[in-house]
Design a protein around this nucleic acid. Structure first.
Lengths: 133, 133
DNA sequence: CTGGTTGCAAAATTTTTGCACTGGT
DNA sequence: ACCAGTGCAAAAATTTTGCAACCAG
């Protein structure tokens, strides 16, 4: 699955990289610490330094995207292009909302400003179902 | 100016607080490091710890708002309610755009999801005029 | 084989904390 | 005078870096 993506960018396919990518895919969104936690359970030899190095590399290659979260450490997700995020101010959880399209927003911004924007990050904030109780 | 706001919340009006608030007002958006830099020039006794403590306090009181920025340290601004931010991926500068209204976005999100969102953060990304050269 | 990648440990950076002292009210 | 707020220095947490060993291509 991810070996192909890595090979396309001429990056070496290492078990550590595959692990990181699959873990993020599985979790949807993961922080560096989340990843380190998961690693310790399954595959104890992956070092924190390797996670940091790969996160930076993979974000730079646009394979991952950083999702900044108010008052928290950033999360990382598999890059699937712009979409709306929802975060809970209580627990910091992040979810995707694929129903609202962000493209019109960029188009409108380009039109109004005469500039050409590459991306938009939209982060809705509201209590998640767990924290609503 | 800010002394009134502080007094309303029963916070003490200290020169450090006034300095921090006025500096952020002046700069529009400032990181903790930005503030510390400015402090050293003008008023060398304000400690980093005090800046951190006050930032947390003032964000908690909704006097300041944290603006998370992709791949950078968060910036802080005087809370003026939701509005669109623009950041430059090269230099990390942040500017406001007051022309695009975020309220319809929340309304639409509430309608589509049946939830009730408190805020939206919208961050447009595109090269600033300086970095375009 | 060979250069990219890893793990480890150390260094650098960033943020938090404890506590005595200060200063706003 | 009281107690929130400050500064300092130490501790904790986070991120980066250097380098020898390793392994994917």
């Amino acid at each position: 699955m991810y070996d192909k993506i890595l090979r396309e960018r001429e990056l070496k396919v290492t078990p550590q990289r595959i692990f990181i990518l699959e873990e993020i895919k599985k979790m949807g969104h993961a922080s560096v610490e989340d990843l380190h936690e998961r690693v310790k359970d399954v595959y104890s030899s992956v070092s924190l330094a390797t996670i940091y190095k790969n996160i930076h590399l993979l974000v730079g290659e646009d394979i991952l995207t950083e999702v900044p979260v108010h008052g928290r450490k950033p999360m990382y997700e598999i890059n699937i292009g712009d979409h709306v995020h929802i975060t809970c101010p209580h627990c910091g959880s992040v979810e995707d909302n694929m129903d609202m399209d962000t493209a019109p927003f960029i188009a409108e911004a380009n039109r109004q400003t005469g500039r050409k924007f590459d991306r938009v990050a939209v982060m809705l904030q509201g209590a998640c179902s767990k924290c609503n109780n």
